[in-house]
């Protein structure tokens, strides 16, 4: 479904991604783990077109998207839940959700999706007229995921969804990720520092170091890999 082939991305003159190759198949949850500064967020920014790669190829459904504008990438079915949630602070919860469905015109279906999201996260229904910036961190994360879902993506990119959240919210967020994947068959690309949780929910994983993939395999193998255990699981 998604294929990154020898992708090289730069921030100014600094090369962040060095010959990065990743493959994601339809319906799976894959996770990308790695230390701070390894290039995980840049990988997602390259896929979504915000920081286009300087060399290499990104194929979505076999079509190159590395030079497509971000709004067209969203239209093709990829949505990103960015690091730090990036809720529009002075739009209401409802307006934030509307913005998620910005490219859709099927108002009846949009309404249905909003209701579905309010079932999933009742707290958002309660706060629907509140400004996004006034929500707590966990609520903002729910809203960020919901906003991305409003676009009905086929591929959902999640950047550190558990960052800065308490244990109850972390568990809730991971449950939701699993649910999104099984219920609506949405493919999920999860970037995480919480490697343990990420590998438990994912089918496959990649380990990234300094802009390169150093290890890949099924989530189970990675969980029991000695190097991964030492470096990322703290065991």
């Amino acid at each position: 479904m998604l294929r990154l082939h020898n992708v090289q991305t730069f921030h100014g003159n600094v090369q962040v991604l060095k010959d990065l190759s990743i493959e994601v198949s339809e319906g799976e949850i894959i996770t990308l783990i790695g230390a701070n500064g390894a290039g995980k967020t840049t990988t997602l920014m390259s896929i979504s077109g915000i920081v286009p790669p300087r060399a290499g190829e990104i194929l979505f459904d076999g079509k190159p998207i590395q030079n497509v504008s971000p709004d067209d990438i969203v239209a093709s079915g990829i949505s990103l839940v960015p690091e730090g949630r990036r809720i529009f602070p002075r739009l209401t919860v409802m307006e934030n959700l509307d913005m998620g469905a910005f490219l859709r015109r099927d108002n009846a279906e949009i309404k249905k999706d909003v209701n579905h999201i309010f079932e999933l996260f009742p707290i958002l229904a309660e706060r629907r007229h509140q400004q996004g910036g006034t929500l707590s961190g966990g609520e903002q994360q729910m809203l960020a995921i919901s906003r991305a879902l409003m676009a009905r993506p086929r591929l959902l990119l999640l950047d550190e969804p558990s960052l800065g959240l308490g244990p109850i919210f972390v568990k809730l967020i991971f449950d939701i990720i699993r649910k999104i994947n099984t219920e609506s068959r949405t493919t999920i690309f999860l970037v995480e520092q919480n490697a343990h949780m990420a590998l438990k929910v994912a089918h496959r994983g990649y380990v990234m170091e300094n802009g390169r993939i150093t290890l890949e395999g099924s989530a189970d193998t990675l969980l029991h890999n000695e190097d991964v255990k030492k470096a990322y699981l703290g065991i």
Binding site: D71, P82, M99
Partner: peptide, 8 residues
């Protein structure tokens, strides 16, 4: 950037 990411 976030506006771009929702398709604006």
């Amino acid at each position: 950037n976030m506006a771009m990411l929702v398709g604006v």
